[in-house]
Simulated scan of single mutants.
Amino acid sequence: MSHKLKKITIHLIEDDISQRDSIESLLVYKDYIVKSYSAAKDFFKNVPFERPAIVIADIQLPDLSGVDLHRILMEKNITCPIIFISGEASIQQSIDAMKQGAIEFLVKPFEIEELTDAVTKAIHIELKEINLNLLIENLSPREREVYKLLLKGHNNQELIDKLHLSLPTVKQYKSEVMRKLNVKSLSKLIELAK
């Protein structure tokens, strides 16, 4: 079915060779496709990359901080999950990373389980987003408008006012959006997009 689409690629950016090798061999052993880089500039040569993908990045790269790397990805509209690893975590860095939407912040030396749990969590989030994006592509432009307004919590009357449609038409659009996104209720629709 859908998660058979493509294997997930893990982009690993770590300048410490021994650290990079040990993380890479662990992930390869777990049957992931891993692309490794020793610096952000090498990684950016590969951007944009195919999704589904996740990024594991050292927070202190020689040429860029992990937080900046994440910001640049977001500016390029690449929203895949990111896990940061750090030798000596400054509290501020981890706060900045999390505020910006990092999935996890691991401080070395971390346990193998911590890393694999973070990777599993990131993959789950990535596949959910990819699936949602595929579903949204099936919506007509009008249905997409309705979807965005529903996410903002607009009720029928607000939809009627904003879209200049009649109530039966609004209801029709709503049920189409929910059918195409395969959700039974509005709360499920909002949960899907979280």
Rank of each mutant, 00 (worst) to 15 (best):
D96T: 04
N46F: 07
D42F: 11
F43I: 07
I130G: 00
E158S: 13
S65N: 14
N131S: 11
D21H: 09
V177T: 06
Y32E: 08
A57R: 02
E137L: 05
S22D: 08
H154G: 00
V47C: 14
V47S: 13
A89D: 07
Q157I: 13
R20Y: 00
H124S: 12
L149Y: 14
E176S: 14
P52C: 07
D68C: 01
K108G: 00
L159R: 07
T169R: 13
R144C: 02
K4V: 03
I190Y: 02
S36H: 08
N156D: 13
Y37G: 08
V67N: 15
K152R: 15
D68L: 09
V34E: 09
H70V: 03
E145Q: 14
D58M: 09
K76S: 09
E114A: 11
Y37Q: 12
M98Y: 02
A97I: 03
D96W: 01
R71L: 09
Y32N: 12
L26I: 13
F43W: 04
I72W: 04
Y32C: 10
S25K: 13
Q92I: 11
S94E: 12
Y32Q: 11
E143I: 06
Y32G: 11
L134T: 03
T116P: 03
H164K: 15
L159W: 10
V119Q: 07
A122Q: 05
K99S: 09
N182P: 00
Q93D: 15
I160V: 15
L163H: 08
N182Q: 15
H124Y: 03
E14H: 04
G153E: 11
K171T: 05
Q19Y: 01
I33N: 15
I8Q: 02
L115T: 06
F43D: 04
G87D: 10
G87A: 15
V146W: 02
A118T: 04
K180I: 05
R144H: 10
S65G: 07
L26T: 12
E14P: 06
L64P: 00
L127I: 01
F43V: 07
E176Y: 10
I23K: 07
I56L: 11
N133K: 14
K41F: 07
K180T: 03
